[in-house]
Write a protein that binds this DNA or RNA. Structure first.
Length: 979
RNA sequence: GGGCUUGUAGCUCAGUCGGUAGAGCGCACCGCUGAUAACGGUGAGGUCACAGGUUCAAGUCCUGUCAGGCCCA
C-alpha cells in the first residue's frame, strides 16, 4: 500500500488542531539536518574572514599564557587517522584553554628534512630520467640540486596537510607555521648544536651504528622498523691456542689429558661478522663444562650443553670436567679462517683472547659470545674496555674490504653468510647451522635489513658531565632522569602517569646519540676538516655558521666556500681552537659532508618556536602518540636540558595508537581517505568521536564507531535545536533578572545543574580528560535537558501567553543555558557550537563578528537551588515508577491509564520536603495534569474521564466550556483572553 | 627476549581505601504524535581473559599463562 491511498490524517481529526495556531510552537532556522559537508567549510571561511586566530591574540594580550607546542608531523603524504586523532586532541586543548580565557597561541609545524623525502625524490628523479641532469655535476652541486627538489616536495605536502588540518576545524596560526627548512628555524637548531658543543658533549668517533646498506647512511633508532627475517644461526668451534692451559683451567690431571685440542664453541646469528671477530666473551659467574660431543672436545656453558647437543643432533655427549667462567678468562684461541690479524699488536701471536662480559646470558647460544667490536654495541664496549681495535672490514655498500681473505673481498655480506657457513663446514669448525626466523631491524624506508657497522660519526655524549650557568657538574642522563623524577618538585607532569616510567626506562638505557647522517636533505653539521683530516667544530664556529643559516638558509653550506661561510670567524680569536690551528687558512678547510639527524632538528623546535618566536619557555605541554617517548619527547628533553639545563615542557600527554576493530595493528592500505571521512561524517562528528576516546589506550577505529558518534551528535544537535526553537520569540530585552528566580522553581534547578555541568566540564578540560567532558555534556543534553527540564517546561512555553512572566523567566533561564552550552561544546564541535551560538543571536549570514570562539565560558549564574531538590528528584523517580505501574494493565496492579496527562498524583511531603514548591512545576516534572500534596504513599489517580483542555490537553480540574465554545483550562482561557 | 601498557554486558568504557557489578550505545517492548527522518519510558544482558596465591572477603593485591598495542634488542 502506498501513502497516497491512505486517508489524509489532517482531515481525520479536525478538532485536535483547533488551537494549534494559538500555541507558541518552536521556531528556528537551526535545521535538524546538519549538512556538515557544506556548512563546515562555510564556517571555516567565515572564521578566516573574521581573523579569529589573530583577534584572539589581540584580545588575550593580558590573559594568562598557555603556551602549547605542536610536534611537527612529517611533510609527506596526506594526513591519516593517526594525525586526525593527534591534531584533534591538540585542538581540544587549544580551544578549551582558549574558552577558559587563556592566551593559547598555537604555531603548527612540519618536519621537512630527512630520508623519507630524499628517498622518494630520488626515486622520482630516476623515474622521470631527470637524474641524468645531475651527471655532470660535482658532489656539492648534486646535493644542492637534490635539495631543491626535496624542498619543493616537502612544501607540496605542507600545503596539502595544512588544508586538511584547517578542514578539520583546528585553530592554529596556519598563516605562519614553522617549517624545519626555514632559515630562522635552521639558525635556532644550529644554535642548540653550538650550546652542546660548548658543554663539551659533541664528539666524533668510530663506533658501530645502525647502517642502512641500501641508503648508505647511519640510521637513528627511530628510523628502524622491526620485521621478520630468515637468518642462519651457526655454532662454531674456535680452536684453543694452548690446550694445556685449557686443561689447567678445568683442573684435569696431566695423566688424564687427551691429546686432542679442545675448542670454544660460540653461537651467532650473523656469520658475516665472523671475519671481524676479535674476542670471545664469557660470564665469569656461570659454570662451563669441557665436553666430548660426538668426538669433538669443546667448551660450553653447563646450562646450555643439553640444548646445544640436541640441536646438533649429537648422539654421544660426555662431560669431562666443569669450571667457573672466571677460569676461562684470559685463555687464547685461533680464528677459524683468518690466518693473519687485521691490525693491532695485541695479537702478535695470531691468537685472540677470552674475556668476561656482563651481557653474556644463558638464554640461548652456548654461553660463549662471539665478539666483533666493529659490529655490535656491546662488542664495542668490550673492545674499548680491553683495548681491541674497532675493526670493521665491511664497506658502506655492504661488501668486504681488502683486509679480508681473498675469497671474501668484495663479496656482499648477506651472500657471505652462506659462504662463511660453508667454509666453516668444510674446515670442520662448524658444529651446527640452522635457518630460523626472527624479528630483525630494517631501514624503515627501504625495508631492507640494517647492519651494525662502525664508521666515523658525530655523537652527543649522554654520560659526559657538564655545567649550565655554573651549576653542579652532571651528565645529560642524570639531569634528564632528575627532570622526570617524582621526587623533584619541578618534575615534568605526565598524563597518563605511567608515561613517566616509560620515559625513565628509556633514559636509563639509551646509548650516546649518533647525530650525523650521510645524506643531502637535512641541516648540515657545520664541521670543517683540516688538511690532515681532523674535524673542527667549535662553539664559536658553529654560531658563526648559524648566523649564516639565519640569513641565507642552510643551502649556503652547499653553494658557498669555507671562506664565504666563515667570513665572520677569526680562527685566531676562537678560544676553543687548539693552538696549532690558530693560524689555519680558511681556504684549506674542507666542508664536512654530514647532515644532522632530523630528530635533533625536531628536538630543538622549542628553541625556534617557544623561545625565539613566542618568547615562552618551557612550554606548558607536549601532546603526542606513545611512540614519541623514544622520539620527540626524548630528543626534545635531551636538547633542551643540554642547552638550558631545563626540560622543554611542564607536562607531557600521551595518546595510544589507532588499531582496527579487533584491536590489531591498522593496516596501512586500509580504509577511506581522510577526505572521504570528512564528507561521509563531517568533522564535528569525527571530533565528537575523538573526544569520546579514552585516548591513553589504543583506540579502535571502524566505520561503526563513527556512525555511533554521528547518532550521538544528532541527539545533541536536536537538543540544541529544540532549545533554540523555544527561544524563537525571545529577545534579550525580555530577559528577567536571574537573581529573581525562586530557589524552589524548576528553573533554579536547571540553572544549578548547568552551573554544576560547567564546573565539571571545565575541570575535565583542565585535566585533558576530554572523554569525561564529552560524557557530561552528552548526559546533560539527554537527561538534564531533554528528558527532564525541556519535557517539563514544554507546557508553559507552548501554552502560556507569550509575554507571560513565568514563560519569560523560563526562557531567560533557557537562553542562559543554551548560550553557555554552546560555549562548553565549542572545543569539541566548533562548527555546530558556533552555528547554534549564531542562531541564538539570529546573526545574519554576512555577520562575521558573532562567533562563539571569541567568547569565554559563562560565569556561574550564582543561583543556589533549594537544597531539597536532590531529594525532590528522588521523589520524582518514585512517582514516575508509580505512574509507570498505573499505566499497566489491571492484572499487573495497573489502572490502564494510557496517557500520563490522564493522571493526577498525590505526593507526600515528609519533613516538609516539597513545602513551598510549585505544584504546577511538580506536575510538569511528572508529565501529569495535576499534583496535590498529601499524606502517606505516593498515589496515582485516574482522571481520564475528566474534561480535557483542547489546547493544553491537560485535565487539571479547571477545564470547562468557554465563551469561544471550546473546552479550556483556566490557564489556557486566560492565555487566549476568553471568558 | 626486555621496558611500558591493555583485557569488566553484544559494542565503547567507569569501577576510589579490597566489602552485594555501573553508565552510554545497541537490542526488545511500551508511550507520544505540538522536538516528528524527532521525543519520552521500561526491560533483558556479566564465570570481571585464564590458572594459582594472599585474605574473613579479590574485578581490585601478588605470581604465572594466554591474547593485543607502542618502543627497544
Amino acid at each position: 500500500m502506498t501513502e497516497s491511498t491512505q486517508p489524509k490524517p489532517d482531515k481525520a481529526k479536525p478538532d485536535k488542531n483547533k488551537y494549534r495556531q494559538s500555541l507558541n510552537l518552536p521556531q528556528t532556522d537551526f535545521p535538524m539536518r546538519a549538512g556538515l559537508v557544506t556548512n563546515e567549510p562555510a564556517s571555516v571561511e567565515r572564521w578566516q574572514k573574521a581573523g579569529v586566530y589573530q583577534k584572539l591574540r589581540e584580545q588575550r594580550q593580558d590573559a594568562p599564557d598557555f603556551a602549547f607546542h605542536d610536534g611537527p608531523p612529517y611533510a609527506n603524504g596526506s594526513i591519516h587517522l593517526g594525525h586526525l586523532t593527534n591534531k584533534t586532541l591538540k585542538d581540544l586543548v587549544v580551544r578549551s584553554q582558549t574558552m577558559m580565557g587563556r592566551d593559547c597561541p598555537f604555531v603548527p609545524g612540519w618536519d621537512c628534512h630527512g630520508l623519507p623525502i630524499e628517498h622518494k625524490v630520488m626515486g622520482e628523479l630516476v623515474k622521470s630520467k631527470k637524474i641524468k641532469e645531475l651527471d655532470g655535476l660535482d658532489a656539492w652541486e648534486r646535493r644542492a640540486k637534490v635539495r631543491a627538489e626535496c624542498e619543493q616536495y616537502a612544501r607540496t605536502y605542507v600545503d596539502l596537510q595544512t588544508s586538511q588540518m584547517i578542514r578539520l576545524l583546528t585553530l592554529a596560526d596556519y598563516e605562519h607555521p614553522y617549517l624545519t627548512i626555514q632559515p630562522g628555524f635552521e639558525k635556532a637548531v644550529t644554535e642548540v648544536l653550538a650550546d652542546l658543543c660548548e658543554r663539551g658533549l659533541v664528539y666524533r668517533a668510530l663506533k658501530p651504528v645502525h647502517w642502512s646498506i641500501a641508503n648508505e647512511t647511519a640510521l637513528a633508532e627511530a628510523e628502524l622498523e622491526y620485521m621478520d627475517r630468515e637468518d642462519i644461526s651457526v655454532f662454531v668451534d674456535f680452536e684453543a691456542a694452548d690446550k694445556e692451559k685449557v686443561y689447567d683451567a678445568f683442573g684435569i690431571p696431566d695423566a688424564e689429558r687427551p691429546g686432542q685440542t679442545p675448542s670454544f664453541m660460540i653461537w651467532t646469528t650473523t656469520p658475516w661478522t665472523l671475519p671481524a671477530n676479535l674476542a670471545v666473551a664469557v660470564g665469569a659467574k656461570f659454570e662451563y663444562v669441557l665436553a666430548r660431543i660426538d668426538g669433538n672436545l669443546t667448551v660450553v656453558a653447563e646450562a646450555l650443553l643439553n640444548t646445544v647437543a640436541k640441536m646438533g643432533k649429537a648422539e654421544d655427549v660426555h662431560v669431562l670436567a666443569k669450571t667457573a667462567g672466571s677460569a676461562l678468562v684470559g685463555l687464547k684461541y685461533r680464528h677459524p679462517f683468518l690466518q693473519y690479524t687485521p691490525g693491532g699488536e695485541e695479537c702478535a701471536d695470531k691468537c685472540w683472547t677470552v674475556y668476561d662480559a656482563e651481557y653474556v646470558t644463558l638464554d640461548d647460544g652456548t654461553g660463549l659470545v662471539h665478539t666483533a667490536p666493529g659490529h655490535g654495541a656491546e662488542d664495542y664496549e668490550t673492545g674499548k674496555r680491553v683495548g681491541l681495535p674497532i675493526y670493521c672490514p665491511v664497506k658502506g655498500d655492504g661488501t668486504y674490504d681488502d683486509t679480508t681473505p681473498q675469497w671474501l673481498q668484495d663479496q656482499h655480506i648477506w651472500k657471505a653468510n652462506e659462504a662463511i657457513t660453508e667454509r666453516l663446514r668444510e674446515s670442520g669448525h662448524l658444529f651446527h647451522s640452522a635457518k630460523f626466523m626472527h624479528s630483525y631491524p630494517h631501514d624503515w624506508r627501504s625495508k631492507t635489513p640494517v647492519i651494525f657497522r662502525s664508521t666515523e660519526q658525530w655523537f652527543v655524549s649522554i654520560d659526559g658531565t657538564f655545567t649550565v650557568d655554573g651549576d653542579e657538574k652532571k651528565s645529560l642522563r642524570d639531569r634528564s632522569l632528575w627532570s622526570v623524577d617524582q621526587e623533584n618538585p619541578e618534575s615534568v607532569n605526565f598524563v597518563p602517569a605511567w608515561a613517566r616510567n616509560r620515559l625513565r626506562g628509556m633514559l636509563d638505557s639509551r646509548p650516546d646519540w649518533c647525530i650525523s647522517r650521510q645524506r643531502a636533505w637535512g641541516l648540515p653539521i657545520p664541521a670543517f676538516h683540516t688538511e690532515n683530516g681532523s674535524a673542527v667544530l667549535t662553539p664559536t664556529l658553529v654560531r658563526e655558521v648559524a648566523t649564516v643559516f639565519g640569513e641565507r638558509g642552510s643551502d649556503a653550506w652547499f653553494t658557498e666556500t669555507p671562506e664565504q661561510l666563515l667570513a665572520g670567524w677569526d680562527a685566531g680569536n676562537d678560544p676553543d681552537l687548539p693552538d696549532e690551528l690558530k693560524n689555519l687558512s680558511k681556504s684549506k678547510l674542507r666542508k664536512g659532508e654530514d647532515i644532522l639527524d632530523v630528530w635533533f632538528e625536531s628536538g630543538a623546535t622549542w628553541n625556534a618556536v617557544m623561545r625565539h618566536r613566542l618568547g615562552v619557555f618551557p612550554s606548558e605541554l607536549y601532546l603526542e602518540g606513545s611512540d614519541q617517548h623514544r622520539g620527540w619527547f626524548q630528543s626534545s628533553l635531551a636538547c633542551a636540558i643540554a642547552s638550558t639545563g631545563k626540560p622543554p615542557y611542564k607536562a607531557v600527554v600521551t595518546h595510544g595508537f589507532m588499531v582496527d576493530k579487533d584491536g590489531q595493528k591498522l593496516s596501512k592500505s586500509r580504509g577511506d581517505t581522510i577526505e572521504a571521512l570528512f564528507t561521509k561524517y563531517g568533522c564535528d562528528v569525527l571530533r565528537w568521536w575523538v573526544a569520546s576516546l579514552s585516548y591513553e589506550n589504543d583506540a579502535k577505529v571502524d566505520d561503526e564507531f563513527f556512525a555511533i558518534a554521528g547518532e550521538a551528535y544528532r541527539k545533541v544537535r536536536n537538543t540544541l535545536r529544540f532549545m533554540l526553537g523555544n527561544l524563537g520569540d525571545f529577545n534579550p530585552n525580555d530577559a528577567v533578572d536571574l537573581r529573581s528566580v525562586e530557589p524552589t522553581s524548576i528553573d533554579a534547578w536547571a540553572l544549578s545543574k548547568f552551573d554544576a555541568l560547567t564546573k565539571d566540564v571545565l575541570a575535565a578540560y583542565e585535566k585533558y580528560e576530554f572523554r569525561v567532558a564529552h560524557a557530561k555534556l552528552y548526559a546533560f543534553c539527554n537527561d538534564t535537558m531533554s528528558a527532564v527540564y525541556l519535557a517539563a517546561i514544554k507546557d508553559r512555553l507552548y501554552c502560556d501567553k507569550p509575554g507571560n512572566a513565568r514563560r519569560r523567566r523560563t526562557q531567560t533561564v533557557l537562553h542562559h543555558i543554551t548560550d553557555g552550552l554552546c560555549r562548553l561544546l565549542a572545543p569539541i564541535v566548533p562548527h555546530t557550537a558556533d552555528e547554534a551560538f549564531r542562531a541564538l543571536r539570529r546573526a545574519p549570514a554576512d555577520d562575521i563578528d558573532t562567533c562563539v570562539h571569541l567568547k569565554t565560558v559563562l560565569p556561574a549564574s550564582g543561583i543556589v537551588a533549594d537544597e531539597r531538590w536532590a531529594r525532590v528528584m528522588d521523589l520524582r523517580d518514585k512517582a514516575l515508577a508509580a505512574i509507570e505501574l498505573a499505566r499497566g494493565p489491571a492484572d499487573k496492579g495497573g489502572m490502564d491509564i494510557d496517557n500520563p496527562l490522564d493522571a493526577w498524583v498525590t505526593l507526600p511531603s515528609p519533613e516538609g520536603l516539597i513545602d513551598g514548591f510549585d505544584p504546577v512545576d511538580l506536575a510538569d516534572l511528572l508529565g501529569v495534569s495535576k499534583v496535590e500534596v498529601g499524606q502517606g504513599e505516593i498515589a496515582v489517580t485516574d482522571h481520564g474521564s475528566d474534561p480535557r483542555c483542547e489546547r493544553s490537553w491537560k485535565r487539571d480540574g479547571t477545564v470547562k466550556e468557554r465563551s469561544d465554545g471550546g473546552m479550556l483550562s483556566n490557564r489556557d482561557a486566560e492565555a487566549l483572553g476568553v471568558a
